[in-house]
């Protein structure tokens, strides 16, 4: 019996010849890496080409530089704005508003989501009004906010907070409500107390959804800030851009535009890093740490 199985397996062995197998896989990986780099290059090729066209159109006079500043002009202006401190002051102000508004949203959004996620009574009280509010266009509140809170920092921070509260609330609430009931059953058989269940099961289980909500909230906060700073402000990136409009300085407007983009990109990256740190147990993160 055992002799027969031995005899059966031996002719098949050369097929799993080790050296040829590894040689194949390493060469294919190298090709794959090359391909990836090429693809990355190709991705940036088209925007680069567009910028080049833009520059030539401006230099040859095809595009009026009064309406659209040239890329070189934008770079030069950006540099002077950095040097005379205008940019850093305005950016600091904008960043502070975004952070303050987001922090407020995080506090209010998570509290409301916990109230309505953890108790039926809480859901009855909190959820319906929030679902109604969330369908309203928050930006339409700008005039009202100016009336109520004047033109100081308060209306801007509150506008940011209001806009970004909803994604945090909605996602965390959904996360809490969609915890696997089988896990909750298991905690009951283990006789876990309610507070232990919340701490060890419900909150960590809803964390991925909370992080998704935060990412949406970050995006929305910049959007709210743009509007708030362009309507009534004497500082901030948005104000810098509105000021430039009066003097037909399209280059400054483009610099502000780029800064908003950059800030959005950076804050999104920050949340992604946070995600990778907080969700180490997830298979996709496990894979990346294993291969790194």
């Amino acid at each position: 019996m055992s002799g027969a199985t031995l005899h059966n397996t031996s002719p098949a062995a050369p097929r799993f010849d080790v050296p040829s197998g590894t040689a194949f896989s390493s060469s294919s990986r190298r090709k794959w890496v090359n391909k990836l780099q090429l693809q990355n290059l190709a991705r940036y090729l088209s925007p680069l080409l567009m910028i080049l066209c833009w520059q030539t159109a401006c230099s040859t006079g095809l595009l009026s530089t009064r309406l659209v500043a040239s890329p070189l002009q934008i770079l030069r202006t950006g540099w002077t704005l950095v040097q005379d401190g205008t940019l850093s002051t305005n950016m600091g102000v904008s960043l502070l508003r975004a952070v303050a508004g987001l922090s407020l949203a995080l506090l209010v959004g998570t509290s409301l989501a916990l109230i309505s996620g953890l108790s039926q009574l809480g859901e009855n009280i909190v959820d319906a009004p929030l679902q109604i509010f969330r369908t309203l266009p928050v930006l339409a509140l700008v005039p009202l906010f100016i009336l109520w809170f004047g033109i100081g920092e308060t209306p801007k921070i509150l506008l940011v907070a209001l806009g970004s509260t909803f994604p945090i609330y909605l996602n965390l609430h959904k996360g809490i409500r969609s915890i696997d009931p089988k896990l909750l059953e298991m905690t009951r058989t283990l006789r876990l107390s309610r507070s232990q269940t919340i701490r060890d099961v419900i909150l960590p289980g809803a964390l991925p959804d909370l992080l998704v909500g935060i990412r949406f909230a970050v995006g929305i906060s910049w959007l709210m800030l743009v509007v708030a700073e362009q309507v009534n402000a004497d500082s901030g990136i948005g104000h810098m851009m509105m000021d430039a409009q009066d003097f037909l300085r399209t280059d400054i407007i483009f610099v502000g535009f780029a800064i908003y983009g950059l800030l959005g990109l950076i804050s999104d990256q920050v949340v992604r890093i946070l995600e990778r740190k907080a969700l180490v147990w997830r298979p996709q993160h496990l894979k990346t740490t294993a291969s790194a």
Binding site: K182, L183, E185, M186, T187, L190, R191, L192, Q196, D200, V201, P204, G205, L207, L279, W281, R282
Partner: peptide
């Protein structure tokens, strides 16, 4: 029914 966000030994001592 292990909690995915707790290591094996923390699951064993859960609660």
């Amino acid at each position: 029914r292990l909690l995915p966000w707790k290591k094996v030994w923390q699951n064993v001592t859960l609660g």
